[in-house]
Structures are given as structure tokens and as C-alpha cells.
Nucleic acid binder design. Sequence first.
DNA 1: CAACTGACGCTAGG
DNA 2: CCTAGCGTCAG
Length: 782
Amino acid sequence: MALAPTSTYAAGQDSSSSSTAIKASKKMENLNLPNSLNHPPRFLSFPLKRKHEILEHQNDHPPKISLTRHPPKWEPPHCSQKQAGENGFSKVKRAWSETAISELPEPQAKVSPSHQTGIVVEVHKETCATKKPLQICQRKVEEKCCESTLASKWTPSSVTCKPLKHKRAKLGPEHGTNGPKISHEGANGGGELQNQSKAGCLTAALTSDPRVTDCGKLNPEEKMLMLEKAGHAKALVLTLVYRDGTTQLDSEQKLAPAVCGLLMLMKNDLDGRTPEDPLGQNDSLVYLKLEHTPAWAQQCTHQSREDMLLQVLSRSQLVVCYKAKDLLRTTLQFYRQDLSWKQVAGCHVQDPQVSGWLLDPANPSSCYQDLFNKHCKRPHTTPAQGTKKCQGLWELYSDMELNMISVLAAMESHRIHVDKEALKRTSDLLGTKMKQLEQEAHRAAGQIFLVTSNPQLRTVLFEKLCLQERCENKKLPKTINKQQQSTSEAAVSILIPLVYTTTLCCNPQVHKIKSTFVDGILSCMTNKNYISSTWYQTSVVTGRISAKHPNFQALPRQPLQITKKQYIQGKNETVINVELYFCQVELRLLAHLSSDPELLRIFTHPQADVFTMLASQWKGVTEAEVTSEDREHAKRIVYSVVYGAGRERLSGILGVSAEQASRFQDSFLQTYREVQAFIQRTIQQCHKQGYVLSIMGRRRTLPNINAPDWGIRMQAERQAVNFVVQGRMTVGAVFCRNSVWCISECVCNCRLIAQLHDELLYEVEDSQVEQFAGEFTTPNIS
DNA sequence: CAACTGACGCTAGG
DNA sequence: CCTAGCGTCAG
């Protein structure tokens, strides 16, 4: 890839010209830019630009929007009347405060426009103002941006940004392990009919199987009998059936199809079965249709199905379902009108996927067959049983993980309403900002390049401008894999002062906000006006919970401000969220595990900022003297120690030399000697046993712990330490305790909305906040 | 040429 | 160290 050497950004300006030239062109930018755009041939010769980008610069040719990916094709979950307690959220601790505006009504709620309420996601002007060198230029650019937006005479095509093409949009919102959602009649166009008939064939094949009883064809008496039978069965095995005829037991599909029913195996013979024919003499197989029938065909069947499902799910005898969370969530979505999440949140459905993951979190099975092959060597043991008890994992499973399944399902069924239009406006605003920043960067670089491309930015910074030669005293970070010059923010912030300009690259923070938190959220909301994350219990080796689509746990703390007013059944009731925040649990855990006296002392001051105190202890100054830089360093060092990052990584993060980073680390470990001792103890133990145990009894085997290769062995050692510290413990404990508390008599009208590693986000009715807080005593781990 | 995939780089969170 | 997610680029 070659740079076009003669290309300059502003007409008539030489790229090598100094700051004055750049400043001059900046002042004239509104005039200058359209001028230069009148000469399209200039831009066509830039090899670094993509074709559609270049076209965008030609005003007379609107950008060619190539929708190369197939458009999102999916069915929205069934939405019905709004349920009381179905709320949006406002973060208290996370500073998502004041803004407010409106929420679109539920499609079927038919609220008049004046009643619209809801969430607004707004990005603050100063959002990007966290890091000093970039902050200044950021502000300037933003001011400029606002001016020019107002005065802009640009055609829409030049102002709006690239078309949305998100991964979610490409794959459809229900792809991957996200799990299927209930089909929704009438929401789709022509494809629906086709699907329905196709599904009809497949389910017909299923129900015509002589072994399967179709519940839909039974008369009320037969249904009662069936229900009774289900009640007496020794074990129930459930699986969802999808429209394409597959079930949850089939291997993962890329596009999870809609659910059309539920297959239920009632087992009475727990002995004497063979894997080839699991259907014993006294067993029966029932098919329960889970589709909304057209209004004209609707009878009283709905009620009985609901009764049946609920009875089945909440019974005390053994109920097994592979990927039980999907089943519970589907049930909740399907009976949204008639079923409270609380009824489901207490269900205990055994899930072999979870138990299998506990046995070997580092190598989770991809599908049921995989799991079966892995853990069931003898045909007569099921994955749910097996060797778990021997390994001491049984308690962990039944006391905690099992409870978590239904809680997560309830969390997933919670809808967070978002004002789509406001989000779109924000997106447009950010789009113009990005445009502005892009031009700024082009000007600074003296040429046009694709600012979102790291390789191109690298070429500009280090091959064209050769900035690395001008900062020999400072060590520039390198990329991990290829050891190239990094173009990260830390690196660019070192370079910025060397060039007499405000910015060299589009601020990656702005880019991130737009692409991930605005457009990304928007892409999660196709055909609906709310979001709800999907929570994963078994996808993280260390035992943490992860979230997707959107990833609730990675929403920014600083820049986004979300607020909402909530209307419940016409009344304006304020519902606020109380957040339980276990201040730096992992650090607390480290203190506990290592019993380091200095570290423990810090946690005896409940109100103090831990990192400030750490910095003051470590640097030997008073807390008032601790600069924000010191605090940031302390924080990074702590994390690097806790999570086992090496000094190379630390130097990259801090933007200092490796020697300096190593000195920081050493001095930290000198201060907190017990921490170091704990780390070494953990590693030694791991060497001896080949596995490590977390505080909850979670286990991770590390086969590489005794590897001959130094690098691989070191990695395993870091992983060992990381696992012990990072395993979810406090939150997990609260999780199970609280799930019970929350669904039983339920002292308050509250609901768990999100788990953010060391925080739990609850929605609590305003009047009950104090009561709620009283119920909750923060557990003291150290 | 379009569409997809995997590797890589970066950033958000902890 | 371990996540999700966005983006580019080469094959």
C-alpha cells in the first residue's frame, strides 16, 4: 500500500508546510472544503481511500451505499401490553443522570404521542475529556463542529455518515448462542407464510410420530390426565423445538430459528434405559405447541398450556433441560401477559450445559452431543450426574449456578425502553463530529487517509511524518502480535505535541461511542423499541457472567447519560434504581486471600477511595497530595498485578518504559509483600496439583502449568492467579441469596436488571428504596 | 465482482 | 488476564 506523496489536503497547501498553513486552512475550512470538493480528480488518485469514501467527497454524486449484507431478517419477540413493573432504568451510581425524554409506546399499547416517555441516550459535550493531551483538541474540534453544523450548507449525503452495517444487522439479532426468541405473528411480510407452512410440515412430522402425543389434539379431560401424569413422572426432560425442526439438542446454528414448540419427555423408568431408545415403556413424549394461533382459531387452549408449563417448570421433582435459560426466557416471553417473571425466577431446572461447564470451564462443549461424548463415558450416567460430587462442585452447582439460571432468564426478559429517535439524532450528531474530526486529521496528516484504519494511520504517522524519530526519549508502545508501532490512543497522545496541530487521528473514543454505544444499541433494536441483553453463565473460564447484544457490562461509565421517566399504567410513577456496589470486590478478595496487613487496613475505611489510598500508601504521601495521575498509575498497577499482566503490557498501558513499569510493579509488591507471597503460593499450588480452586470452589485445570516452554508456562501461571482472584464470589453469593429473597414473599417490588461484575443493578420502586436498602446488608468479605 | 472468514488492532468494562 | 464489539484487510 503506497501513499500518494503529492496529495495535499487543502488546495494549494503543501503537505510539508508548517503549522501556520494548517491553521490558515482551518480558519477557512467552511469555504475551503467545498472548494476543494469541486475538484474530484484530485481525490480519485488516493490509494488509501476506499472507493465509496472518495465518492462521498464528491457532492454531485451521492455516496454509493452498498448494502452488501443481507438485511436483518428476524421476528421480534412477542410484545403485548405493558406489564406493571416493566421498567426502564436510570443508573444512580454510574452517573447516568438527568436528561429524560420520551419512550415510544409499546406497539399495542396505543398510548397517545403526548404520553411518550422513556430513555434518552445523550453524549455529553465533554465526554471525551478524560485524557489531557487529546482533551484540548477534542473540545476545540467539537466547538468548531457545532458552528459548522449550524452554518452548514452541505448536502445530506456529505453530512450523514456511512450506512449502518453492524454485525448484528448482518447476522440478525438472534444469531449465535443468543438463543431463539418466540415467533410473532403478523410482524413479518411474505416470508412468514412460507415459514409457517414449512414449520407446519416439520412439526407435522414430529407430531405424527406414534411415540409423540400432540397436546393440541387432546380434549380437556385427556389434558388433565396428561398433566397429572407429568406431575407424577420421576423426571421430565424438556427441549425447545424450532421451526426448522431442530431442537436445543442439535448443534448450534448460525441463525437460531424461531421457537414453535416444546418437547417433553416424561420418564418413569429411570433404570433400564438405553441411550438408543430413551423411551421406556412407562415413559411418554408430549409435544406442546408454542405458537400464537390466529385470533379466529384461538380458544381456551392458552390458559391450559400456561398452566401445564408452569406446573412442569415449578415442580419439585427432577426437570432437565439443556440450555434451560433459553427455555425459561422463552416461556416468559411467550406468556408475557399472564406470567410474572417472579413465577419463573424460582424455577429450578437442571441444566447439563452448566454442570458440564463447571467440570471444565476452559473447554466448554459446543453442543449436547459434544457434552455427552465428553462426560458420559458409560451410557448409564447422565451429564447432570456424573463425577461432579466427587470434585466438590456439586454444592457450587446446586447452591449457586442452578439458582442463577432462572434469575438470568428473568433478567433477559426485562425490557429497557429506549427512545429510538433520540438515539438516531445522537447518531447523526456524532456522525457530523466524526466527519469534522476526520477532516482535521486529514489536514494534519497532509493527505487523505482512512482514519478508522490502523495500518493507514500507522503509515501516516511513522512512515510519512516519521514522528518516532522525534521522540527518542520516550518509548512508543508496540502492537502485541506484530511488534509494529502502535496507533493506540496512548501512543498518539505522545505524538500529538510533536505536530503543531490539534489532532492526528479521529478520536477513537468518539468513534467508539458512535459505533458501539449509539449505532450498536440501535442495531439491537430492529423492530422494537427496547433493548435487553443476553446473559451468559457459561462463557467465561473464570466463572464471571458475560453479556451480549448489547454488552451491558461494557457500557461506559463516564460519557453516556441515560435517564428515563416511566409511565406505568398511565400513572407517572418514578422508579429509580438502587445499585449495590461492592467496592472493588476483586481487590478486597486479594486482600482477603493474601491477608496483607497494609491492604486490609485500607478496607477498614469504608468511604475512602481505594486507589487514592493505595497511591498515598505506595508513594508515601498524604491522600490530599495524590494526583490523579498517581491514582491512575496505582489502579493500573493493581490490575496488572491482580490479573497478571507483565511489565511489557503495563508499560503499554501506562505509556512509560518497560523499566519504569517494572520499577512501579516492584515497588508495589515491596509495599504489599503478602500479595506477592500469595501469588507465589498460588502458583506453587498449581504446579503441584495441576489445577487451582477459587474461593467458591470453582476449579480450573491448567495443563500448561508445567510446560517446558517458558512463555506458555508463565501464561498458565498468570491464568492461575487471575482465576483465583477473578472468580465471581461475593456477587455470586448475593446472587443466589437474593434470587430466593426476591421471588419469595418479596418485601419490595424490585427487580434485578444487570450484573456488572462487582455491581448489581436493581430496579426498585421509589417508595421502597429505603426498605430495600435495609434488607440489604453489604456482606463484608474481609 | 460480491460475499464471507479469520487475523489483527483498538477500546469499553472488570 | 478475560470479556464484547467495532473496524480494516488479505485471502
